[in-house]
Design a protein around this nucleic acid. Structure first.
Lengths: 222, 222
DNA sequence: TCTATCATCGAACACTTGTTCGAAAGTCTT
DNA sequence: AAGACTTTCGAACAAGTGTTCGATGATAGA
């Protein structure tokens, strides 16, 4: 994923990926024909195969590129943050922010997870498992730290992913609350649900640390 | 949906629907060919068209039959229950119970929502909207009653559906907690998340009413 | 046993699918 | 302006698609 010196080839590839993602998101992967992609990208049918060697690899490129960005952004965002609750909040915020900003690609990643097979499936799935484990471990830490009881961490993990990934089924940026509001709502909904009656106490602790963090950051910025 | 006097025709239709749902759940609706259905049901290709007049109607029958059952069961279960929190708990329990018990059909209902078009789509979607509104109104009531603030009811509603409907992506009845545990976890997760710090108080009230309810029921049973 | 209705089937049709291949056009360096 | 690449394309192919139709076998009432 080179960001700076994008060659003509890379630029066009990205354009093809974005356009294809829009069509896949709209019609679904399987009902979309290569002729649909050809029409949408204004390229000839055979011309497309210069950029990938099969329809399935096109799907892979969309999913892999998109997911890699989510993970990279997340990693960068969490760097240096130690408090697990704060880490979780940032992760949720990043996930939802990217999801809303790249709804087409994220829908294709979420909804067409099983439309990809073989080695390509394995590649995407490996990353997906790592990401899931990151969240699951985070929740485990938080549960231990706050003595959360009676909640299955696996159930909690996938409940959170359910809340976040389901949004492509209903969220409308023009009618619903904005990303910040969405993020706040889901974070609050999940976190105080997961922490239960320990939520208040944790929140008090958290805001204390947060204030401390912001203060120390502003010192660095001066 | 006649339950008692199932004719030979009805029995076979249900068998075809169940078998098809399993194939659709496994391969996806679009990649599944009518020849796949023919093979799985051990009927001839043309013989299938005696029971429905297109592949899309087959999908519709699966979705409609399945969803109608969920709604009917739910309606029956909520009958006579007034407390909104208790109603919500029962609804969640019913939804998850039916989901786990009929994973194939429910996956087809959730995942292939956009694979159906035209009037058939409208029919399913009308029921879906009613079901969603039921939950949304319930959450509105609960929010009002408990003075919940700072939570968008629409976001909360679809977060709940996200938690519940996402399970076809991860839940394994043989490895994970059983339905009761799943239901408890998700109910607790969502409800104390939604109620926030009001959860404790509401829970105390609730168990009080519950005990009262059970006492009065046991009187009737004597 | 005859007959009307129900249930099933084989064979075929018209059409769309993803992919390939050789040639042409564009682009840039020398 | 020649040559070496990169990029694009039209035309075609083999395979698979959902659906139809006329004809069979099964079933049960007269």
């Amino acid at each position: 994923m080179p960001a700076e010196p994008q060659s003509k080839y890379d630029q066009k590839l990205v354009h093809v990926l974005k356009t294809s993602a829009a069509v896949f998101a709209d019609k679904g992967y399987h009902p979309t024909s290569m002729r649909d992609i050809s029409r949408a990208t204004k390229m000839s049918l055979s011309g497309l195969y210069y950029y990938f060697k099969s329809k399935e690899e096109l799907l892979f490129l969309i999913q892999d590129y998109c997911f890699s960005t989510v993970i990279d952004d997340c990693r960068r965002l969490l760097e240096g943050v130690d408090d697990p609750v704060r880490r979780l909040k940032l992760l949720i915020e990043n996930h939802l922010h990217y999801f809303v900003q790249n709804m087409n690609e994220m829908k294709v990643l979420s909804h067409e997870a099983e439309s990809i097979t073989g080695d390509l499936f394995k590649k995407v799935n490996t990353k997906k498992r790592q990401y899931v484990n990151l969240v699951m471990n985070l929740l485990g830490e938080i549960a231990r730290e706050n003595r959360v009881e009676g909640v299955d961490v696996r159930v909690a993990t996938f409940s959170l992913f359910g809340m976040m990934n389901w949004i492509y089924n209903w969220y409308n940026p023009r009618k619903d609350v904005d990303v910040a509001g969405l993020s706040n709502n889901i974070t609050r909904l999940f976190l105080s649900g997961f922490l239960g009656d320990k939520a208040l106490e944790a929140e008090r602790l958290e805001t204390g640390r947060e204030a401390h963090l912001e203060r120390s950051v502003s010192i660095w910025q001066q």
